[in-house]
Amino acid sequence: MHVIDAAYNLVEQYPGGAASLGPRVGKAGGTLSHEVTRTGTAKLGLETAVRMTVLSGDYRILEAFAAQCGRMTLPLPEVLQEGGNNVLARLGDMLREQSDVVREVTMAAADDKITPNERKRIVKEVGELIATGAALIAALGGGANAPTEGGGA
Rank of each mutant, 00 (worst) to 15 (best):
His2Val: 10
Val3Gly: 07
Val3Arg: 10
Val3Ser: 10
Ile4Ser: 12
Ile4Gly: 02
Ala6Ser: 14
Ala7Glu: 01
Ala7Val: 00
Ala7Leu: 01
Tyr8Met: 13
Asn9Gly: 11
Asn9Asp: 15
Leu10Thr: 03
Val11Gly: 00
Val11Ile: 10
Gln13Glu: 12
Tyr14His: 09
Tyr14Lys: 04
Gly16Thr: 08
Gly16Tyr: 06
Gly17Gln: 02
Gly17His: 08
Ala18Tyr: 03
Ser20Thr: 08
Ser20Phe: 00
Leu21Thr: 02
Leu21Met: 07
Pro23Lys: 04
Arg24Lys: 13
Arg24Trp: 00
Gly26Ala: 05
Lys27Arg: 11
Lys27Asn: 06
Lys27Met: 06
Ala28Pro: 06
Gly29Lys: 01
Gly29Gln: 02
Gly30His: 08
Gly30Ile: 04
Thr31Leu: 07
Leu32Cys: 07
Leu32Glu: 08
Ser33His: 13
Thr37His: 13
Gly45Asn: 08
Val50Gln: 05
Arg51Lys: 08
Arg51Gln: 04
Thr53Ile: 01
Val54Asp: 04
Val54Ile: 15
Ser56Val: 12
Ser56Glu: 04
Ile61Tyr: 04
Leu62Tyr: 00
Leu62Cys: 07
Glu63Ser: 05
Ala64Lys: 00
Ala64Gly: 01
Phe65Asn: 01
Phe65Gln: 01
Ala66Asn: 02
Ala66Gln: 02
Ala67Phe: 03
Gln68Leu: 06
Gln68Asp: 05
Cys69Met: 10
Arg71Glu: 13
Arg71Gly: 15
Met72Glu: 11
Leu76Glu: 08
Pro77Arg: 07
Val79Pro: 07
Val79Asp: 09
Val79Glu: 10
Leu80Gly: 06
Gln81Gly: 14
Asn85Glu: 14
Val87Tyr: 10
Leu88Thr: 15
Leu88Tyr: 10
Ala89Arg: 13
Arg90Met: 14
Leu91Phe: 15
Met94Ser: 08
Met94Gly: 08
Leu95Arg: 15
Leu95Gly: 15
Arg96His: 11
Glu97Phe: 08
Glu97Thr: 11
Glu97Cys: 09
Gln98Asp: 09
Gln98Ile: 14
Gln98Gly: 15
Val101Trp: 03
Arg103Phe: 11
Glu104Thr: 12
Glu104Ser: 13
Val105Arg: 00
Thr106Glu: 13
Thr106Tyr: 14
Met107Ser: 15
Ala109Trp: 05
Ala110Asn: 10
Ala110Trp: 04
Asp112Gly: 15
Ile114Val: 11
Pro116Tyr: 05
Asn117Tyr: 13
Glu118Thr: 04
Arg119Asn: 08
Arg121Leu: 03
Arg121Ala: 05
Ile122Asn: 00
Val123Gly: 01
Val123Ser: 04
Lys124Asn: 05
Lys124Cys: 05
Ile130Gln: 04
Ile130Tyr: 07
Thr132Met: 07
Gly133Met: 07
Gly133Leu: 03
Ala139Val: 05
Gly142Asp: 07
Gly143His: 09
Ala144Asp: 03
Pro147Arg: 09
Thr148Val: 14
Glu149Trp: 08
Gly150Val: 13
Gly150Ser: 12
Gly151Cys: 06
Gly151Pro: 02
Gly151Ala: 07
Gly152Met: 15
